[in-house]
Amino acid sequence: MLKVENVTKYYDDFKAVDNLSFEVNKGEIFGLLGANGAGKTTTFRMIMNLLEPTSGKITLNGQVINYDITDKIGYLTEERSLLLKLTVKELMIYYASLKGMVKEDIENELKKWLKRFKIEEYENKKIKELSKGNKQKIQFISAIIHKPELLILDEPFSGLDPINVDMFIEVINELKENGTMIIFSSHQMNHVELFCEKLMILDHGKTILKGNLKDIKSNYDERKILVKADASKTELKKLKGVKNVLIKGDEIELSIEDKKYVESIFKYITKCKNVTKFEVVELSLHEIFTKEVGVRNEE
C-alpha cells in the first residue's frame, strides 16, 4: 500500500503541497487531479524520491521511499522523458537496468510489449524517428517493463488516437487486476471516470475534494435532466430550480440547482406533448472539477 501522510512541500516561501494525505491499495486506481500548478507533479516527484517533503511521510508497503523502493515504482511523466538519440532497445535497456533488471529479461519483456502494442518493427529504430503516439507507447512500456508494484501515470493518453487509447486502457485494467497500485492523473475527466474508483482534486496544493467517485458524484445535489419533448425553452427557464436550459439537437438539457426540484419538473414535462425521454443524471466529473476549481479560483 502507498501511504501519503500529511505531506507538505515548500519551495522557499511558496507552499506547493499543503498537508496532503491519501492511500492507494493493491489493485486500485487512484485519480490525482488538479489544474496546472495544483501540486500534482510535486507530489509525484516526492513519491519518486526526486524531492524530499518538507514535512510528512510517504511509505510504500510500510517502507519509507528510498532508491531501493523506487525500483518497484514505474513513472510515466507528463512530458516525454525519452533519450531521442537512442534506439528503442537501447533506451529500454538503459531505463530498465536502472530498475535492477538484467539484459536478457529486458529484451524478452520488450519483445512481448512491442508485440502487444503492435510496434515490433521499431525495436532498433531511434526514438527521434518515431511518431508522437509511438513515443508515448515506448514511454509507457518503459514505465511498466519491470512489473512495478506502484505505477504513476501522468497524462498517459497524450498523443494517442482512440484505438491506442483503448489499447492502453486494456493494459491498465490488466495491471490493476494483477494487483498493481496505480495513480492516474489526467485533464481528460472522462478517462478518469473510466477507471478511477477513488480520487482527489488538488488546487494550489490543497485537497479540495477527496473520496470515492460514486460518493463524490451522489453527494452533489445539482443534477441534469435530459428531456425529449415539445417544450418551450423560455417556459422551462421559468421553472423553479432550473438554472440553465440548453438545446442539444433534438434534446433539451436542464441544469437544476438541487435534486429536490426533479419531481416538480417531471410533473411539468408530463404535460408537454411528444415526451419520449426524461432522464436525471448526476454531474460529470468534468463539471464537478470545473465547478470546484473554478469557484476557488474566482475566490
Binding site: Y67, T70, I73, T77, R80, S81, L82, L83, K85
Partner: peptide
C-alpha cells in the same frame, strides 16, 4: 543537458542519487 532537456533526468534520478 541532453538528459535534462529530454526530461529523462526525472527517470534516471528517481533510480539513482
Amino acid at each position: 543537458n541532453e538528459e535534462k532537456s529530454t526530461k529523462s533526468m526525472e527517470i534516471i534520478i528517481s533510480n539513482v542519487s
